[in-house]
Design a protein around this nucleic acid. Structure first.
Length: 228
DNA sequence: GCGACAG
DNA sequence: ATCTTGTCGC
């Protein structure tokens, strides 16, 4: 995907949670939650896994045809793990490897599905939003569980959804991606509206709970493709 | 002060 | 996230 991504967009971890949070608030001010995206031709899915007892961070990026959802390319990036997992600061741990993987893709995607929250975050900067702001790529957060926020019960059928609320605001939605499966937590990352996010995700959900981009990236990152 | 807490 | 096979339910 050309040579234009900021692989140094995430500062080295110095142990200061307060400093990291301040940077998140600063970056969140640059979010644009509007549909100013180019026509959808290529969609990417990215996810992270670990090797060597967590010492190595392994990021996977998959590029698919937006219409047929057929995979066009798969790449993997490995970087030494810099910091531990701290709720609310996930991007500082996983973003460096993710950017490296995106860089290796043969083309720039028109939209990126990220495993984790978009703006459904205490300071509105989950990993999907963080990735979007530093690359200016359109992103959507596709999480398997909630970080913050509350919601009413969701219908049991594919497509059913309810808003996710946090401090008097709607920060995303809880979406049933398939009949009778645990719902996904969807939130805009960057350059995608609150209304479009769940629609785009649903359009990529075929016969599994996870949308194709994230499902394929998930398999690669967790090396579930190699082992039985 | 106590509990919650993406991956 | 990760350690891990078969198994219960739709």
């Amino acid at each position: 995907m050309k040579h234009a991504l900021p692989t140094d967009a995430v500062p080295a971890w110095d142990g200061s949670v307060a400093k990291a949070r301040a940077l998140q608030t600063e970056l969140a001010a640059k979010l644009r939650l509007v549909d100013d995206r180019p026509p959808l031709r290529l969609i990417a899915g990215v996810d992270v896994g670990f090797e060597e007892e967590g010492a190595v961070t392994r990021a996977a990026a998959v590029l698919l045809d937006a219409v047929t959802l057929a995979p066009l390319a798969e790449v993997i990036a490995r970087l030494p793990t810099r910091m531990p997992y701290i709720p609310g600061l996930l991007s500082f741990r996983e973003l460096p490897a993710l950017l490296e993987a995106l860089e290796q893709l043969p083309a720039t995607p028109d939209l990126v599905f990220v495993d984790g929250q978009g703006i459904a975050h205490p300071r509105r900067l989950g990993i999907a939003s963080h990735l979007g702001v530093v690359t200016d790529l359109p992103t959507i957060g596709v999480a398997k569980s909630i970080l913050v926020g509350v919601h009413q019960d969701v219908g049991m059928l594919r497509g059913d959804r309810v808003p996710l609320h946090y401090q008097d605001e709607v920060i995303g939605c809880v979406l049933r991606s398939k009949d009778k499966v645990r719902p996904l937590i969807i939130s805009p990352g960057h350059r995608v509206s609150m209304q479009a996010a769940p629609e785009l995700v649903l359009a990529c959900c075929t016969k599994y709970r996870l949308p194709e981009p994230t499902r394929l990236a998930d398999r690669l990152a967790s090396r579930r493709d190699r082992r039985r």
